[in-house]
Design a protein around this nucleic acid. Sequence first.
DNA 1: TATTGTTATACTCTATAACTATA
DNA 2: TATAGTTATAGAGTATAACAATA
Lengths: 155, 155
Amino acid sequence: MTKPRRREPVPKESPGLPGRAVARLAKRVELALGFAELSLPQYRVLALLAEGSAASSALASRLAVSPPSITALVDGLVARQLVERRPDPSDRRRIALVLTDKGRRVLTDADAAVGERLDDIAGYFPPDERMRALDGLRLWHQALDAYRDARVRGA
Amino acid sequence: MTKPRRREPVPKESPGLPGRAVARLAKRVELALGFAELSLPQYRVLALLAEGSAASSALASRLAVSPPSITALVDGLVARQLVERRPDPSDRRRIALVLTDKGRRVLTDADAAVGERLDDIAGYFPPDERMRALDGLRLWHQALDAYRDARVRGA
DNA sequence: TATTGTTATACTCTATAACTATA
DNA sequence: TATAGTTATAGAGTATAACAATA
């Protein structure tokens, strides 16, 4: 047994666990997205499609959700004309999902709203750490891309 | 109009937007929590209660969710004996929510599972940035605390 | 047969509105 | 009257299982 003592409120010598920070940040992002009338899952879909169209199945595996979830999620985005379903003539089982211009605009607005909220929160960092905190977040994209690609290939 | 051109896939000079990174990280955290059979909202509740018991209403405002949502969320945690509802004798409208020992154990397991997953992802950072990336995440707790306290007081 | 996507169904998280109990 | 919490209800995101269409 290496467990030291149980019932410590929080490991006080550390400023917190990274996963909990992500969980808390995610809620603030979710609230900010409300102004663009987007949910966090919808935001993930639009952000991924902004990097290029994708088949429904590719979207599912890259976002790590089930195929039926993508169908439901995209249904809502198509109804709002943020995404377009485009059948693939060469393989009629496949359907390409494409971000519309309106979808791109909404995504940009969402990015702005979320960015402002994160700036607000970062405002509580000491001035010299503020930029570093936000840039640190940005850097995770590359690692996430590599991690996702490894997963998708593996699956 | 300052908009440069529309239809740029992603601002290539920047490594990504911070809000999108949070959105993507949140999904990975959510998946990791599956091993502890916790959802992201449940994880937020347990993490907050680990810092001290709280009334239902206080929990709602600090987690930025509605009172009925807390009721539903806590129902599930109480059913699994991770949280206990403890009536306040001095004001019988109030109900204190307390993390049980089992809840503390599950939270610890969840922290570990999430931490491992984030370590995996951070493994794709250059070696010299790996630690800094995870520590950067941890630092957000303080800013989030300050931001939340300002909100709760304001509301 | 295998693959792509959808339908059917169920469970959780979420909110608003209305209600109960207590102050 | 005002406050704390719950119940009623509805909508979105999620999954698994079963299905249709196509390869």
